[in-house]
């Protein structure tokens, strides 16, 4: 009989714990359905050269695939960091998502070009196959062409050292300890 008096308190505590945990979950962060799967097959045009490229154009070593567009404000914020990563030897492939190729070329000319190549996805079909739901998004693909990680939103130093650096150990040494990575 004694124990039952505390049942409401127990139930309340459990509910409170559940709701408290809910507060720290970001509901806009979707689980990436494509993790562990090969990068979707595509035949698209490369932005700069105008050549036709396929999935084979971007294999053999771990790399980033960055989904961007000129209409995307956050992409502009992210751009300088992408340039730095490219300088530090991280291969980055661009996926120019639902954009106007002329504007995209102008953007690269004006702001600099961190990309090895740029897949032109005007109608967003490759983005759809990837499960993209907004720009910017950045994927890590492995040497075997599998998708290892997805980040939605602006990629910066903090995010990179936390979630990306394990696939790019060489980059960490190049960065010269601008941030302290040993704390994690």
């Amino acid at each position: 009989m004694r124990v039952s008096r505390f049942l409401p308190l127990l139930a309340f505590s459990m509910l409170a714990a559940l709701l408290y945990k809910g507060l720290s979950i970001d509901p806009t962060e979707l689980p990436a359905a494509r993790l562990g799967q090969p990068f979707p097959e595509f035949i698209k045009i490369d932005l700069k050269s105008g050549r036709e490229i396929t999935t084979d154009a971007m294999m053999r070593r771990p790399a980033l695939v960055n989904v961007w567009a000129t209409w995307c404000y956050s992409c502009r914020l992210e751009h300088p960091y992408l340039l730095r990563l490219a300088q530090q030897g991280v291969p980055i492939y661009g996926l120019n998502y639902k954009d106007d190729p002329d504007k995209a070329l102008g953007w690269l000319e004006q702001l600099g070009d961190p990309y090895q190549l740029n897949i032109v996805d005007i109608e967003g079909s490759l983005g759809l196959d990837l499960g993209v739901y907004g720009a910017p998004e950045t994927y890590v693909i492995g040497a075997d062409g599998r998708i290892l990680h997805r980040h939605v939103g602006v990629l910066d130093e903090t995010v990179f050292s936390r979630d990306f650096s394990r696939w790019f150990p060489n980059k960490a040494s190049v960065s010269g300890g601008a941030i302290d990575e040993g704390s994690g």
Partner: peptide, 8 residues
């Protein structure tokens, strides 16, 4: 749809 965007 689920293959691309998950059960979500």
């Amino acid at each position: 749809m689920v293959a691309r965007y998950g059960e979500f």
